[in-house]
Design a protein around this nucleic acid. Structure first.
Lengths: 178, 178
DNA sequence: AGGGGCATGTAAAGAGTTACATGATTCT
DNA sequence: AGAATCATGTAACTCTTTACATGCCCCT
């Protein structure tokens, strides 16, 4: 069972959603940490339904096909809980910008400064985005509240962007002589 | 052209290597940020050779097949430089542990504390590993030196693990009442 | 009338993981 | 004699991305 399937179960544990809504969630909140396109979501929802982890509810709605809202089943909730307790390996080991930095010695100093500055800016923008979400979300509640978990993932994002900005500054200090 | 292909070019820009050596490098240094198995490396090396970005040199060596050491070509170096200057999107958006944390409200407080503590420990161990590499590597040199780039990627790792430890502590403070 | 958002799917290609397969050399 | 390391490949499967494809509803 893939991470994506569990990400979908985790979203459905909060409230029933259509495939479209799940796809959108994988472009924002949880999507900052695990992205997926709708073309991947629909087949996975079918698989989850067939495995009895989610139940589709037929809806009247727009479009040529039947609209469906998915509910987490008891089996799905049990699977999600069991997944949470299983051991995880360390991640991420897929960081394209760090791979680029590994070859940064091949660039002219000006170009090197430019790409690091661009990276810093991307994270400064992302940080501002996270901070505005934090405003909307408020202070963390009790750990049994979904809001707490959302606040904790947000905190991961805040800390990560701050770390990338600090790292960029570390490089800029050493790339600019004097 | 994939990230993996450019990671391979970035390794070959330092010194000629066999597919086996490249595979090992993708389990350590640069492998902390972009992992790949040998089964992925060999076909990509073939593709790089066919595209004229790397040249194979036949070697006497053990085993039933011919041994090859790959050299970066001028075209390969140009491609690598050009890739470095092209814009990057933000990464990573694949962080399994954060996806788990998004559902942590479903767990008993004890289990929640346990998985966060385990995560913290993984990063504390990784941090110690990075610190011993830093000892061996020394202080950063000039930006045109491959050592500088290696030191900069290491700095990314150091900062990242520190951030994950701080984030784990943030969660533990809130998961443990009192 | 046209654009954007809601809504659901399939197809094809590329990337990545796990397993299968072979065989020499070196160390214990 | 057996294990670890060096060394190279293929096969099968899953995951991910990009593109194709349809059509309603609401707002301007």
């Amino acid at each position: 069972m893939s991470v994506l399937r569990h990400a979908l179960l985790g979203l459905l544990a909060r409230e029933p959603m259509t495939g479209y809504q799940l796809s959108r969630a994988l472009e924002r909140t949880i999507g900052y940490f695990w992205h997926a396109n709708h073309s991947q979501v629909y087949p996975q929802l079918k698989a989850l339904s067939e495995a009895g982890l989610a139940r589709p509810e037929a809806l009247a709605g727009p479009g040529p096909r039947e609209n469906k809202r998915f509910h987490l089943s008891d089996l799905g909730r049990a699977e999600l809980r069991s997944w949470l307790s299983r051991p995880v390996k360390l991640g991420p080991d897929r960081d394209e910008f760090v791979v680029r930095v590994y070859s940064i010695w091949l660039l002219d100093p000006d170009d090197a400064v430019r790409i690091v500055t661009e990276h810093r800016q991307l994270h400064a923008d992302r940080l501002a985005e996270y901070q505005s979400i934090r405003q909307a979300l408020g202070e963390p509640t009790e750990p049994s509240d979904p809001q707490f978990a959302q606040r904790a993932t947000l905190q991961a994002g805040l800390g990560y962007s701050q770390h990338r900005i600090a790292w960029s500054d570390w490089m800029l200090d050493r790339l600019r002589p004097g």
